[in-house]
């Protein structure tokens, strides 16, 4: 019984400690960010390319099909109430407020987050980070900050592209395939989507960008410097990012409603 209590105490203690270390890590990245933006913008551009431009294909393909399936489902269910003209509204609101940011964040964690954490983990395992420190180069500043900022900057753009392609997919399915009236589709959408909805989507995409990149960088930096450790860190990046994104999504929606 005593052992059980001690175990619970230890794991709680460990959790709180890790959480605190995570916050401090975040503050450290933020503190080094302005200097890196001014001094080494090239490094950040490279990471925007890695996290953003290289994720473009998966974002576009997924967006097209998510939009398409929303169009199909929206049509199938709304036509029961003779309301197939509202397909545009349903798809646009769903994509802009929820699915765009959330699915993009999940894809981002899977595509860019894993790449980040395994790259950083491998750098650590092969002592590259230690070598930098030996050369008086701060690895947090030189390696982690550009990767973090690249992800944060890339994410809102990815979400915007995902949402647009999704709308295009819904347009294809509902107008060309199911012959919904094109005027009704766009007009109903424009009547019910407000600037606040778009603002909510942008806020979410920004928050998710920060969370997903931060978790990827954190897991990579704290990976055990072995082959197994790097693999485990990569898995943890995806799992924890997905959980964090979905919980935060609920909280942001509840606050903004």
């Amino acid at each position: 019984m005593n052992a059980l209590i001690r175990d619970i105490y230890n794991s709680t203690h460990e959790f709180v400690r890790t959480f605190g270390a995570f916050q401090l890590f975040f503050l450290r990245l933020i503190r080094h960010s302005p200097r890196m933006i001014v001094r080494r913008p090239g490094l950040i551009v490279k990471q925007i390319y890695n996290a953003g431009a290289l994720s473009m294909v998966i974002i576009m393909v997924c967006g097209l099909f998510v939009g398409g399936v929303l169009g199909l489902q929206g049509y199938a269910n709304l036509s029961r109430f003779n309301a197939e003209d509202s397909v545009g509204t349903v798809v646009a609101l769903a994509l802009i407020k929820e699915l765009g940011p959330v699915i993009t964040a999940l894809l981002f964690a899977g595509r860019a987050g894993t790449a980040l954490s395994s790259e950083i983990g491998l750098m650590k395992a092969t002592d590259q980070l230690a070598a930098m420190e030996m050369m008086a180069v701060n690895p947090v500043r030189r390696v982690l900050v550009p990767r973090f900022l690249g992800g944060v900057i890339a994410m809102p753009f990815l979400v915007a592209v995902f949402t647009c392609i999704g709308l295009f997919g819904a347009h294809l399915v509902s107008i060309d395939l199911l012959s919904v009236d094109v005027g009704a589709f766009w007009q109903q959408m424009q009547l019910s989507v407000s600037m606040d909805d778009i603002r909510e989507g942008i806020i979410k995409s920004f928050v998710f960008g920060v969370v997903a990149s931060l978790l990827a960088v954190w897991e990579g930096y704290n990976a055990m410097p072995t082959a197994e450790g790097v693999g485990r860190a990569t898995t943890r990046t995806v799992v924890i990012s997905a959980i964090a994104v979905l919980i935060l999504d609920f909280m942001i929606t509840a606050v903004m409603l």
């Binding site: 925007i48 990815l158 915007a160 600037m195």
Partner: peptide, 17 residues
């Protein structure tokens, strides 16, 4: 990438609302 992202944002703010 950035241009595409910006034009997507522009499309969202002007065409859907």
């Amino acid at each position: 990438f950035v241009l595409l992202g910006m034009s997507a944002l522009f499309f969202l703010t002007t065409q859907t609302t």
